[in-house]
Nucleic acid binder design. Structure first.
Length: 558
RNA sequence: GCCCCGAUAGCUCAAUUGGAUAGAGCAACGGUCUUCUAAACCGUAGGCUACAGGUUCGAUUCCUGUUCGGGGUACCA
């Protein structure tokens, strides 16, 4: 009961995180001293020997104040004394860092709050009332999704989940084109297979698709339409193939727990005249010219590398024009933020789109383009080459068959999107301790089991626990990791890089596993058991929350 | 040629966006189950952060070159 009162007392003060609280107090002290506000940091030091929080402010002030950093630090530390809630001692260490050491009770007090707020622990809903569109995958329906698409799918969906957690109203969107040369090639490839089924020795067209899925589609077509269709029905073949492939694409995504809200078809932009409208407007504003029978956009005038062709001399638009029209539509649809997740092969195309949008008078600062590097697949250290056309690839589906959806999702997320992802099939396939996914899930299963076990031992309720009993080093370390959650989520939001969450959860699981091996939760000491059960209940909430944000399941048994 | 991204332990990658002694996993070696799950924990070993300069209190991080990988540089998408 003693702690319950203390907790309520602290509650109002805990609306800020540790780091923000320190920053606020620091700013107040600067004002009192009449010093300028430098660009300083308050962070969790890597090494716990340097306290629970640390600031470099003294070093950043050294130059303008013309004083030794340690000297400045000492003065600030003296001023801050007893003013930051939860801080026991403040030290001046190293070249002039100010280090803050918190009391155990500060950390203990977070447990009731986590248990009350659950998944929304420390969520400040910064995105409330704002809409965001996340475009990802956007593969044209020419074949099943590959391992490369998989990375984008998981990245995009995890980013969407992180935005949702912050309160954003998220639209997951898939942009595709089922017209054009590649689709005609697809139709012709299916047609060739289809003819062969009727005994004709028809060759696959030059540059056509050769995968086994083509044969499957031809067979389905044969079953539905019979064997006497001719190439005059090519559009029928195209439509049939596109539909079938789209079906497999959405099925693959659903296996990873990914569902798009909107499927935006490029053809609609032609049908409803949006493409003509964009072209006309660029023309009236004087941003295009004609050369060699083609229509060119003066991209150079807007900072792009060189001018680009929008309409070929054949009268057919290049891919750029619909891209511009589509992005313009996104802006007009009124999203507060637009996130484009693209493969690194798109990095050259986006500046042109942005240039055109600016030429049309749009503010493009709402658009964030995230480029991710490619995935290389290795098996026993050897690279596997991938090509959709040649069908020399491992499909996303095959990968999920092999490793399971949780492993697939985690592997795609655990590396930063800016670096190449080396997907080791052999490792992903291992259902053993070599596989980091199980490390996280095992932690969750262990937590669950402890809670079950406590009931079996006759501890019906642990609500009246005395949390001041939680004071061992490993337990405080675990608590520290727990309250880091909000900072990590903030980092994920500002960087749109879900890897940070994956790394954090790994650290959290480690802190838990260490604790688990050293301190038994359910013992003969009922009071101590109750306190630790509250702790476990709280960690479980955070871990489960994080795993769900990455779309990874939280098993209760393993 | 030009543009973008990358280069960190044997391998795959981190490093709180400029901070203190550069950290994990895997692989190697050694130790820990009568206990709530050993899919765990502890320890040992492993580094001139590709190279050369520069910027400052301080650089894996920023700037300039060089080397090596990947991508782009279409009237292909």
């Amino acid at each position: 009961m003693r702690v319950a009162v203390a907790t309520r007392f602290f509650m109002g003060l805990f609306e800020e995180t540790m780091l923000k609280e320190i920053r606020n107090k620091m700013n107040a002290v600067l004002d009192e001293l009449g010093w300028e506000h430098p660009d300083f940091q308050v962070e969790r030091p890597r090494d716990r020997a340097f306290g629970h929080a640390s600031s470099n402010i003294a070093m950043t002030l050294a130059k303008t104040l013309r004083r030794a950093p340690r000297d400045i630090a000492a003065e600030l530390a003296e001023k801050l004394k007893d003013r930051v809630p939860g801080v026991e001692t403040i030290g001046v260490e190293g070249p002039g860092f100010i280090n803050f050491y918190y009391s155990a009770s500060y950390f203990q007090a977070f447990i009731p709050r986590i248990r009350r707020e659950k998944q929304r622990f420390q969520c400040e809903f910064s995105g409330k009332g704002k809409t965001v569109q996340v475009e990802f995958v956007s593969a044209n329906p020419t074949g099943p999704l590959t391992i490369g698409h998989g990375r984008q799918a998981v990245l995009g969906d995890s980013i969407a989940r992180i935005l949702e957690w912050h309160g954003y109203d998220v639209t997951r969107e898939y942009y595709f084109n089922d017209a054009g040369r590649q689709m005609r090639m697809l139709g012709a490839s299916v047609y060739a297979r289809y003819r062969r089924m009727s005994g004709d020795d028809m060759p696959i067209p030059e540059g056509g698709y050769e995968g086994e899925y083509i044969t499957d589609i031809a067979r389905q077509f044969h079953e539905e339409y019979g064997g006497d269709r001719t190439d005059e029905d090519l559009q029928v073949f195209i439509d049939f193939a596109a539909k079938a492939i789209f079906h497999t694409i959405t099925a693959s995504l659903r296996r990873l727990n990914i569902v798009h809200d909107v499927y935006y078809n490029e053809r609609d932009l032609y049908r409803n005249g949006k493409i003509d409208a964009v072209l006309k407007e660029l023309e009236t504003k004087g941003h295009v010219y004609r050369k060699d029978g083609a229509v060119w956009f003066k991209a150079e005038a807007f900072g792009a590398e060189k001018d680009r062709v929008l309409v070929k001399s054949s009268g057919e638009p290049t891919y750029r024009l619909p891209d511009i029209a589509y992005h313009r539509e996104k802006l007009l649809r009124g999203f507060d933020m637009i996130v484009d997740v693209f493969g690194s092969d798109h990095h050259a195309t986006y500046p042109d789109v942005r240039a055109a949008l600016e030429a049309l008078g749009h503010d493009t600062s709402r658009i964030r383009v995230l480029l991710h590097q490619f995935v290389t697949l290795t098996r026993a250290g050897r690279k596997i080459k991938m090509s959709t056309r040649k069908a020399e690839f491992v499909t996303l589906d095959e990968l999920i068959d092999l490793a399971g959806p949780d492993v697939v999702r985690y592997f795609y997320i655990m590396r930063s999107m800016g670096s190449h992802l080396n997907f080791d099939i052999a490792l992903a396939q291992k259902q053993s301790d070599e596989n980091p996914v199980f490390y996280l899930q095992y932690a969750h299963a262990r937590m669950h089991n402890i809670l079950v076990h406590s009931r079996e031992k006759g501890i019906a309720s642990y609500e009246d626990a005395d949390l001041s009993l939680l004071k061992e080093d490993e337990i405080i370390a675990l608590l520290e990791h727990m309250i880091e959650f909000r900072d990590v989520m903030y980092l994920c939001l500002s960087s749109l890089e879900p890897m940070h969450l994956a790394n954090y959860l790994y650290r959290l699981a480690t802190a838990f596993h260490k604790c688990y091996t050293v301190h038994r939760v359910v013992t003969e000491d009922i009071e101590l058991s109750k306190a630790r059960l509250q702790l476990i209940d709280a960690v479980k909430i955070i871990l489960a929350n994080g795993l769900q944000l990455l779309g990874i399941r939280t098993p209760e048994k393993m």
